[in-house]
Amino acid sequence: MNETPESTVLDPTAAPATADAVGGVEAADDGPGVLETRSMDVFYGDFKAVADVSMSFTFNEISALIGPSGCGKSTVLRSLNRMNDLIPTARVDGEVRYHGTNIYAGDVDPVEIRRRIGMVFQKPNPFPKSIFDNIAWGAKINGFKGSKSDMKDLVQGALEQAALWDEVKDKLTESGLSLSGGQQQRLCIARAIAVQPDVILMDEPCSALDPIATLRIEELMLELKENYSIIIVTHNMQQAARVSDRTAFFNVELDTTGQRTGHLVEFSPTDVLFTTPKEKATEDYITGRFG
Protein backbone atom coordinates (compact mmCIF):
# COMPACT_ATOMS: atom_id res chain seq x y z
CA MET A 1 0.00 0.00 0.00
CA ASN A 2 1.37 3.33 -0.95
CA GLU A 3 0.84 6.07 1.45
CA THR A 4 0.52 9.73 0.55
CA PRO A 5 3.26 11.63 2.34
CA GLU A 6 1.13 14.69 3.14
CA SER A 7 -1.33 12.63 5.05
CA THR A 8 1.33 11.85 7.61
CA VAL A 9 2.06 15.51 7.83
CA LEU A 10 -1.57 16.39 8.24
CA ASP A 11 -1.89 14.00 11.12
CA PRO A 12 1.22 14.67 13.15
CA THR A 13 0.41 12.26 15.95
CA ALA A 14 -0.31 9.37 13.67
CA ALA A 15 2.91 8.05 12.27
CA PRO A 16 5.32 8.10 15.21
CA ALA A 17 2.73 7.05 17.72
CA THR A 18 1.71 4.08 15.64
CA ALA A 19 5.22 2.91 15.30
CA ASP A 20 5.62 2.96 19.08
CA ALA A 21 2.31 1.58 19.99
CA VAL A 22 2.26 -1.44 17.76
CA GLY A 23 5.69 -2.43 18.95
CA GLY A 24 6.38 -6.02 18.17
CA VAL A 25 3.31 -6.49 16.06
CA GLU A 26 4.13 -6.08 12.46
CA ALA A 27 1.96 -3.28 11.22
CA ALA A 28 4.05 -0.18 11.26
CA ASP A 29 5.69 -0.95 7.91
CA ASP A 30 2.70 0.18 5.96
CA GLY A 31 2.04 3.24 8.04
CA PRO A 32 -1.47 4.07 9.15
CA GLY A 33 -4.06 2.06 7.27
CA VAL A 34 -7.72 2.51 6.80
CA LEU A 35 -8.38 1.36 10.36
CA GLU A 36 -6.05 1.20 13.30
CA THR A 37 -6.49 0.30 16.91
CA ARG A 38 -4.19 1.68 19.54
CA SER A 39 -3.89 0.00 22.92
CA MET A 40 -7.53 -0.87 22.77
CA ASP A 41 -9.14 -2.54 25.79
CA VAL A 42 -12.76 -3.67 25.67
CA PHE A 43 -14.81 -4.24 28.78
CA TYR A 44 -18.21 -5.75 29.46
CA GLY A 45 -19.05 -4.13 32.75
CA ASP A 46 -16.03 -4.84 34.94
CA PHE A 47 -14.94 -7.77 32.83
CA LYS A 48 -12.03 -6.98 30.55
CA ALA A 49 -12.74 -9.08 27.46
CA VAL A 50 -9.70 -8.03 25.42
CA ALA A 51 -6.65 -6.08 26.42
CA ASP A 52 -4.15 -3.87 24.67
CA VAL A 53 -4.94 -4.55 21.04
CA SER A 54 -2.93 -2.48 18.59
CA MET A 55 -3.21 -3.33 14.94
CA SER A 56 -3.48 -1.63 11.61
CA PHE A 57 -5.66 -2.80 8.72
CA THR A 58 -4.50 -1.96 5.25
CA PHE A 59 -6.50 -0.73 2.28
CA ASN A 60 -8.03 -3.22 -0.11
CA GLU A 61 -6.84 -6.25 1.70
CA ILE A 62 -8.53 -9.06 3.50
CA SER A 63 -7.48 -9.40 7.11
CA ALA A 64 -8.50 -12.42 9.10
CA LEU A 65 -8.89 -12.68 12.88
CA ILE A 66 -8.43 -16.17 14.25
CA GLY A 67 -8.12 -17.69 17.69
CA PRO A 68 -9.83 -20.01 20.15
CA SER A 69 -13.44 -19.25 20.88
CA GLY A 70 -14.04 -16.71 23.60
CA CYS A 71 -10.74 -14.93 22.92
CA GLY A 72 -12.54 -11.78 21.88
CA LYS A 73 -12.48 -11.83 18.07
CA SER A 74 -16.10 -10.75 17.75
CA THR A 75 -15.56 -8.22 20.48
CA VAL A 76 -12.67 -6.65 18.61
CA LEU A 77 -14.59 -6.70 15.36
CA ARG A 78 -17.63 -4.99 16.87
CA SER A 79 -15.38 -2.34 18.37
CA LEU A 80 -14.21 -1.37 14.91
CA ASN A 81 -17.53 0.15 13.88
CA ARG A 82 -19.02 0.89 17.28
CA MET A 83 -21.52 -1.95 17.10
CA ASN A 84 -20.52 -2.48 20.73
CA ASP A 85 -22.55 0.63 21.50
CA LEU A 86 -25.60 -1.60 21.22
CA ILE A 87 -24.46 -3.63 24.21
CA PRO A 88 -25.23 -1.48 27.23
CA THR A 89 -22.39 -2.82 29.38
CA ALA A 90 -19.71 -2.63 26.70
CA ARG A 91 -16.95 0.01 26.96
CA VAL A 92 -13.86 0.67 24.86
CA ASP A 93 -10.63 2.21 26.14
CA GLY A 94 -7.82 3.30 23.86
CA GLU A 95 -8.34 4.41 20.30
CA VAL A 96 -9.70 3.14 17.05
CA ARG A 97 -8.61 5.35 14.18
CA TYR A 98 -10.43 5.46 10.91
CA HIS A 99 -8.60 7.50 8.32
CA GLY A 100 -6.76 9.00 11.23
CA THR A 101 -9.85 9.99 13.22
CA ASN A 102 -10.52 8.33 16.55
CA ILE A 103 -14.01 6.92 16.13
CA TYR A 104 -14.54 6.96 19.88
CA ALA A 105 -13.90 10.70 20.11
CA GLY A 106 -16.85 12.52 21.62
CA ASP A 107 -17.74 14.42 18.50
CA VAL A 108 -17.83 11.43 16.16
CA ASP A 109 -21.16 10.13 14.98
CA PRO A 110 -21.45 6.36 15.39
CA VAL A 111 -24.18 6.22 12.75
CA GLU A 112 -21.82 7.75 10.20
CA ILE A 113 -19.11 5.27 11.22
CA ARG A 114 -21.37 2.31 10.64
CA ARG A 115 -22.34 3.49 7.20
CA ARG A 116 -18.68 3.64 6.19
CA ILE A 117 -17.71 0.47 8.01
CA GLY A 118 -20.38 -2.07 7.15
CA MET A 119 -20.99 -5.37 8.85
CA VAL A 120 -22.05 -8.88 7.90
CA PHE A 121 -23.11 -11.17 10.71
CA GLN A 122 -22.60 -14.79 11.59
CA LYS A 123 -26.19 -15.77 10.90
CA PRO A 124 -27.69 -14.30 7.75
CA ASN A 125 -30.21 -11.70 8.91
CA PRO A 126 -32.15 -10.32 5.97
CA PHE A 127 -35.03 -8.04 6.83
CA PRO A 128 -38.46 -9.66 6.51
CA LYS A 129 -39.05 -7.58 3.39
CA SER A 130 -38.64 -8.02 -0.33
CA ILE A 131 -35.19 -8.65 -1.76
CA PHE A 132 -35.34 -5.27 -3.46
CA ASP A 133 -36.28 -3.43 -0.27
CA ASN A 134 -33.60 -5.22 1.70
CA ILE A 135 -31.04 -3.46 -0.43
CA ALA A 136 -32.84 -0.22 -1.14
CA TRP A 137 -33.62 0.51 2.52
CA GLY A 138 -30.03 1.20 3.52
CA ALA A 139 -29.60 3.59 0.64
CA LYS A 140 -32.86 5.35 1.39
CA ILE A 141 -32.13 6.01 5.03
CA ASN A 142 -28.70 7.27 4.09
CA GLY A 143 -30.26 9.96 1.95
CA PHE A 144 -30.16 8.37 -1.51
CA LYS A 145 -31.15 11.14 -3.88
CA GLY A 146 -31.40 9.31 -7.20
CA SER A 147 -34.52 8.53 -9.19
CA LYS A 148 -36.40 5.26 -9.15
CA SER A 149 -34.35 3.89 -12.01
CA ASP A 150 -31.16 4.99 -10.25
CA MET A 151 -32.32 2.95 -7.29
CA LYS A 152 -32.93 -0.03 -9.54
CA ASP A 153 -29.43 0.33 -10.90
CA LEU A 154 -28.04 0.54 -7.40
CA VAL A 155 -29.87 -2.60 -6.31
CA GLN A 156 -28.79 -4.44 -9.44
CA GLY A 157 -25.20 -3.27 -9.03
CA ALA A 158 -25.07 -4.41 -5.42
CA LEU A 159 -26.59 -7.78 -6.26
CA GLU A 160 -24.16 -8.23 -9.15
CA GLN A 161 -21.20 -7.41 -6.94
CA ALA A 162 -22.51 -9.93 -4.45
CA ALA A 163 -22.84 -12.48 -7.27
CA LEU A 164 -26.52 -12.90 -6.54
CA TRP A 165 -28.15 -11.02 -9.40
CA ASP A 166 -28.59 -13.95 -11.76
CA GLU A 167 -30.27 -16.02 -9.10
CA VAL A 168 -32.77 -13.41 -7.91
CA LYS A 169 -33.33 -11.04 -10.80
CA ASP A 170 -36.77 -12.54 -11.50
CA LYS A 171 -37.99 -12.46 -7.93
CA LEU A 172 -36.92 -9.13 -6.50
CA THR A 173 -40.30 -8.68 -4.86
CA GLU A 174 -40.15 -11.94 -2.96
CA SER A 175 -39.22 -11.96 0.69
CA GLY A 176 -35.53 -12.04 1.51
CA LEU A 177 -36.36 -14.88 3.87
CA SER A 178 -37.41 -17.09 0.95
CA LEU A 179 -33.78 -17.49 -0.17
CA SER A 180 -31.46 -20.29 0.86
CA GLY A 181 -28.96 -19.65 3.65
CA GLY A 182 -26.06 -18.98 1.32
CA GLN A 183 -28.16 -16.68 -0.84
CA GLN A 184 -29.38 -14.86 2.26
CA GLN A 185 -25.81 -14.24 3.33
CA ARG A 186 -24.91 -12.88 -0.10
CA LEU A 187 -28.02 -10.71 0.11
CA CYS A 188 -26.69 -9.36 3.39
CA ILE A 189 -23.37 -8.65 1.71
CA ALA A 190 -25.14 -6.91 -1.17
CA ARG A 191 -27.12 -4.91 1.34
CA ALA A 192 -23.92 -3.84 3.06
CA ILE A 193 -22.28 -2.88 -0.22
CA ALA A 194 -25.23 -0.79 -1.34
CA VAL A 195 -24.58 1.92 1.21
CA GLN A 196 -21.08 2.48 -0.25
CA PRO A 197 -18.89 1.59 2.73
CA ASP A 198 -15.16 1.32 2.39
CA VAL A 199 -14.59 -1.33 5.03
CA ILE A 200 -16.69 -4.45 5.49
CA LEU A 201 -16.53 -6.41 8.74
CA MET A 202 -17.60 -10.03 8.61
CA ASP A 203 -18.11 -12.10 11.74
CA GLU A 204 -17.84 -15.78 10.82
CA PRO A 205 -19.97 -15.16 7.73
CA CYS A 206 -19.81 -18.79 6.60
CA SER A 207 -20.25 -20.66 9.84
CA ALA A 208 -23.97 -21.19 9.23
CA LEU A 209 -23.52 -22.21 5.58
CA ASP A 210 -22.85 -25.42 3.70
CA PRO A 211 -19.47 -25.93 1.94
CA ILE A 212 -20.71 -24.92 -1.50
CA ALA A 213 -22.27 -21.72 -0.21
CA THR A 214 -19.06 -21.10 1.75
CA LEU A 215 -16.99 -21.42 -1.40
CA ARG A 216 -19.14 -18.84 -3.17
CA ILE A 217 -18.76 -16.38 -0.34
CA GLU A 218 -15.02 -16.89 -0.30
CA GLU A 219 -14.80 -16.22 -4.03
CA LEU A 220 -16.96 -13.18 -3.51
CA MET A 221 -14.63 -11.83 -0.84
CA LEU A 222 -11.67 -12.14 -3.17
CA GLU A 223 -13.56 -10.13 -5.79
CA LEU A 224 -14.71 -7.53 -3.33
CA LYS A 225 -11.27 -6.74 -2.01
CA GLU A 226 -10.59 -4.84 -5.25
CA ASN A 227 -12.84 -2.15 -3.89
CA TYR A 228 -13.18 -2.71 -0.18
CA SER A 229 -11.07 -3.46 2.83
CA ILE A 230 -12.42 -6.59 4.46
CA ILE A 231 -11.88 -7.80 7.99
CA ILE A 232 -13.17 -11.28 8.67
CA VAL A 233 -13.45 -13.31 11.84
CA THR A 234 -13.23 -17.00 11.23
CA HIS A 235 -12.80 -20.08 13.35
CA ASN A 236 -11.69 -21.92 10.29
CA MET A 237 -7.94 -21.68 9.76
CA GLN A 238 -8.11 -23.05 6.24
CA GLN A 239 -10.49 -20.28 5.35
CA ALA A 240 -8.15 -17.68 6.77
CA ALA A 241 -5.30 -19.20 4.82
CA ARG A 242 -7.30 -19.31 1.58
CA VAL A 243 -8.72 -15.82 1.51
CA SER A 244 -6.78 -13.46 3.71
CA ASP A 245 -3.74 -11.38 2.98
CA ARG A 246 -2.91 -10.90 6.61
CA THR A 247 -3.94 -12.81 9.67
CA ALA A 248 -4.16 -11.87 13.33
CA PHE A 249 -4.01 -14.53 15.99
CA PHE A 250 -5.74 -13.84 19.30
CA ASN A 251 -5.34 -15.88 22.39
CA VAL A 252 -6.92 -15.87 25.80
CA GLU A 253 -5.09 -16.03 29.07
CA LEU A 254 -5.99 -15.99 32.69
CA ASP A 255 -4.74 -12.73 34.12
CA THR A 256 -3.69 -12.15 37.70
CA THR A 257 -7.23 -11.58 38.91
CA GLY A 258 -8.47 -14.78 37.30
CA GLN A 259 -10.22 -13.10 34.38
CA ARG A 260 -10.03 -14.67 30.96
CA THR A 261 -8.85 -11.74 28.93
CA GLY A 262 -8.07 -12.00 25.22
CA HIS A 263 -5.09 -10.36 23.61
CA LEU A 264 -3.44 -10.09 20.22
CA VAL A 265 -0.52 -12.50 19.85
CA GLU A 266 0.60 -11.91 16.34
CA PHE A 267 -0.54 -10.04 13.23
CA SER A 268 1.43 -10.99 10.12
CA PRO A 269 1.08 -11.63 6.40
CA THR A 270 -0.94 -14.81 6.15
CA ASP A 271 1.75 -16.92 4.47
CA VAL A 272 4.21 -15.87 7.13
CA LEU A 273 1.87 -16.61 10.01
CA PHE A 274 1.00 -20.05 8.75
CA THR A 275 4.54 -21.07 7.80
CA THR A 276 6.90 -19.31 10.15
CA PRO A 277 4.96 -17.88 13.07
CA LYS A 278 6.95 -15.71 15.42
CA GLU A 279 5.21 -16.84 18.55
CA LYS A 280 5.14 -20.26 20.10
CA ALA A 281 1.41 -19.90 20.95
CA THR A 282 0.57 -19.24 17.31
CA GLU A 283 2.45 -22.29 16.20
CA ASP A 284 0.71 -24.44 18.78
CA TYR A 285 -2.64 -23.17 17.63
CA ILE A 286 -2.15 -23.57 13.88
CA THR A 287 -0.67 -26.99 14.25
CA GLY A 288 -3.73 -27.95 16.23
CA ARG A 289 -1.99 -28.52 19.51
CA PHE A 290 -4.76 -26.69 21.30
CA GLY A 291 -7.93 -24.71 20.74
Binding site: R114, V120, N125, F127
Partner: peptide, 20 residues
Protein backbone atom coordinates in the same frame (compact mmCIF):
# COMPACT_ATOMS: atom_id res chain seq x y z
CA UNK B 1 -30.28 -9.61 14.53
CA UNK B 2 -32.68 -7.25 12.76
CA UNK B 3 -31.60 -4.38 14.94
CA UNK B 4 -27.93 -5.17 14.34
CA UNK B 5 -28.51 -5.42 10.61
CA UNK B 6 -30.23 -2.05 10.56
CA UNK B 7 -27.67 -0.29 12.71
CA UNK B 8 -24.84 -1.98 10.80
CA UNK B 9 -26.04 -0.28 7.64
CA UNK B 10 -25.67 3.13 9.17
CA UNK B 11 -29.29 3.59 10.11
CA UNK B 12 -30.05 5.61 13.21
CA UNK B 13 -31.71 3.91 16.12
CA UNK B 14 -35.10 5.37 15.29
CA UNK B 15 -34.82 4.48 11.60
CA UNK B 16 -34.07 0.90 12.59
CA UNK B 17 -36.91 0.74 15.07
CA UNK B 18 -39.40 2.40 12.74
CA UNK B 19 -38.66 0.36 9.62
CA UNK B 20 -37.39 -2.97 10.93
Amino acid sequence: SLRQAGMGLGATKWQTVRSQ
